[in-house]
């Protein structure tokens, strides 16, 4: 049984086909990267998976439940967590409150009261190393801290599937390596499946994912184990002939 199954999903905005007949599957605990240039439809695919948008065609199954028409909050309750490409912290709430909100309303939310949520938040704040910022307003964090806080907020939701949108964009190679290690760690500690969207940081893809799905102009181009995918000539062509090893920046 797969955790998530996306079947022939299409999404159009006016005349533009943002996601074009995409089919994909994610197993429990799997780590997958979706790569593709800007505008390839990656974020739209995420939005369809977690219910920010609804698919025009096709079906989405989560743990064998047809969630195609479920609103975003219901999918969150079922165990789909999400971070955003451009961080969306609750700016005038503290770091602790931000993360506690994830704990209060996520998959374990119905059994979590405010006090318990705050305790869980403290745990995740420690995990991301932001303990000294616990009572700071989230709006005042640096961009990288905001990204970390968003990951903690999503983890506090106790998801079974975590969708990470460009978690490493704008980071230097050292931070990327740290982030890759961190993602690997939380994956094994929390036992969750992770899908990461990556625009062009191949270093991260190679270090992180077991499987790579390459999107191009809304459609699925390649869906293979990482090694095979990254040496696929079509993939290299999508990235304008730049060999994967040199596309780090």
């Amino acid at each position: 049984m797969s955790l998530l199954r996306v079947e022939n999903v299409t999404k159009r905005f006016g005349g533009l086909v943002a996601v074009d007949n995409v089919t994909m599957e994610i197993a429990h605990g799997e780590m997958m990267a979706i790569v593709g240039p800007n505008g390839a439809g990656k974020t739209t695919l995420f939005n369809l998976i977690n219910g920010v948008f609804f698919a025009d065609e096709g079906k989405i199954w989560f743990e064998d439940v047809d969630v195609t028409h479920y609103p975003a909050y219901k999918r969150a309750h079922m165990g789909i967590g999400r971070t955003f490409q451009i961080s969306r912290p609750f700016a005038s709430a503290t770091v602790q409150e931000n993360i506690a909100i994830g704990a209060m309303f996520g998959a374990a939310g119905s059994e979590t009261n405010v006090d318990q949520a705050m305790e869980m938040a403290d745990h995740y704040i420690g995990l991301i190393g932001l303990s000294s910022h616990r009572d700071k307003l989230a709006g005042g964090l640096t961009p990288i801290e905001k990204k970390m806080m968003e990951i903690a907020r999503a983890l506090a939701m106790k998801p079974r599937l975590l969708l990470m949108d460009e978690a490493m964009a704008g980071m230097n190679p050292k931070d990327i390596d740290k982030m890759v290690d961190f993602i690997k760690r939380i994956r094994s500690e929390e036992g969750i499946a992770i899908v990461a969207l990556v625009e062009h940081i191949m270093r991260a893809v190679a270090g992180l994912a077991e499987r790579v799905l390459v999107m191009h102009q809304g459609a699925k181009l390649v869906d293979e184990p990482t090694k095979i995918a990254l040496s696929d000539p079509r993939v290299i062509e999508v990235y304008l002939g730049v060999p994967p090893g040199e596309a780090d920046a």
């Binding site: 909050y73 219901k74 969150a76 969306r88 909100i101 994830g102 907020r153 939701m157």
Partner: peptide, 9 residues
């Protein structure tokens, strides 16, 4: 929108 994604109805 972020609130909905966090599971808030």
């Amino acid at each position: 929108d972020a609130a909905k994604v966090m599971g808030i109805n």
